[in-house]
Design a protein around this nucleic acid. Sequence first.
DNA 1: TATAACCACGGATTATAATCCGTATTTTTT
DNA 2: AAAAAATACGGATTATAATCCGTGGTTATA
Lengths: 68, 68
Amino acid sequence: MNDLAKALGANIRAKRKESGISQDALALECGLDRSYMGRIERGEVNITIEKLYKIAAQLNCSAGTLLP
Amino acid sequence: MNDLAKALGANIRAKRKESGISQDALALECGLDRSYMGRIERGEVNITIEKLYKIAAQLNCSAGTLLP
DNA sequence: TATAACCACGGATTATAATCCGTATTTTTT
DNA sequence: AAAAAATACGGATTATAATCCGTGGTTATA
């Protein structure tokens, strides 16, 4: 999508790997679609603040730390 | 909308007042609609991270500092 | 007290975020 | 090497973010 989305996606992916879970598992916990989680990590989409907070909550970090 | 949007809107409003500009002026600088800027500050909408960054840039602060 | 600048609020439309499938490929495990 | 798990990727649809334009009310300024 753009540099912002790509950097954010990379941060989310890194944090997810740290916690040792799959994309599908994280998507399920966040209550969002598995294919969409893939697009987020690849930086193909421009997510809303609400989704950012849901993801941060499941990754046990603040929303701010996920931002580039 | 919800507590998150309201808190974010309040933060944006506070930062905007600090810089002493109007909603309309900020909206114009960010390249987004004036009525939408009002809804953001009132916490009526769920904005995307792209918009968050545009607003932060014009308010001379990081996107993270605008988050609740 | 006018006049103007600023903000709240709304309805209708357009753009796009997010979902719901599916399948092919890659990576990991046995 | 085979099986299983994880990821990439895509098309079609639905939900909603964002725009466009208008009006009424409230607060500063002349």
